[in-house]
Nucleic acid binder design. Structure first.
Lengths: 154, 154
DNA sequence: AGCGTTCGGTTCAAATTTGAACCAGATTCG
DNA sequence: CGAATCTGGTTCAAATTTGAACCGAACGCT
């Protein structure tokens, strides 16, 4: 194990910033959603992903891919949302094993009700804090990272 | 509740990128640390913060501030690390209530052993994926966000 | 058709996280 | 001094997350 390449000052700043911003933003938004809409961020993300899919429905596996949770974690949360009446399960035509999660009427309604407050919070914590240039740069960098990880995960 | 300002394309890209990169990077590094060093990222962060402090020790409250966990979460993790022999608790001179967490010899050793692999993984997932310009821009944006949140949390 | 492998989802126990309640030691004023 | 309040840390129950084990169904091949 030879001497590794340590991080220089900028690299360290990027990394510390990443860790810190990540946690702080997550914490802040978690609370906002819980307080204002009674949803965890995970649950909100599930609703968002479903709402963006055709018919407001997705197969469990596809949903798990888009979110970044374990399969069992998804099963758990979908069950919670089902109990709350926001999501339903249907079986998947053509594959008996498959399960399709689908937004209910109430799910759509809850999401529409939660979205404005959440967007405002996102602006407040992340978007409006930065200049347009910073924001564009951030989007560029983070998407590079995300794409790269998506690719190498497979 | 009037019509909110929705996110435009760049804003949305930044936000989605943030959520996605955040989760993917966290997941990746969590696994790396667990596999290679038997530590969770939280635990590793505790060791790092302690190692950066004078004497390798910090008061619980200060530690909780630097990490971004709840007080009870910190108590739990420090107890775990104590069981593992990486951290010790001392009482705080001058304030009977206070507790100081302190790296043990073994804690230093474990951290030194874990660091190279972790740094390599950080490079791999985040740093080396970006150009120097992207990296500098990322550091700039994220630190702006973090600083701003630190300020408004108080 | 038959066999071995992969896939999709759930179940389970164990580890972690969180917020609220709590306790004892500080602080602050009147 | 002494009551009222605040602080630092732990404890507790409840919610969540994770990975491993599992089961039945689909697939690839012979």
């Amino acid at each position: 194990m030879d001497e590794p390449r340590w991080l220089d000052e900028t690299e360290m700043a990027a990394w510390r910033g990443f860790v810190e911003a990540t946690n702080l933003v997550a914490r802040r938004l978690e609370r906002q959603l819980k307080d204002d809409a009674g949803l965890s961020h995970t649950q909100y993300e599930i609703l968002v992903q479903l709402s963006a899919a055709p018919e407001g429905s997705l197969r469990m596996t596809d949903l798990a891919d888009r979110l970044v949770t374990s399969k069992s974690g998804l099963t758990y949360q979908v069950t919670q949302l089902e109990k709350a009446g926001l999501v339903g399960r249907r079986s998947c035509p053509g594959d008996v094993r498959g399960v399709i999660a689908e937004l209910t009427e109430q799910g759509w309604h809850t999401l529409r009700a939660a979205a404005p407050g959440h967007v405002a919070a996102v602006r407040d914590t992340l978007i409006d804090v930065l200049t347009p240039q910073q924001l564009a740069a951030l989007a560029d960098s983070l998407n590079t990272v995300a794409d790269r990880l998506r690719a190498t995960d497979a």
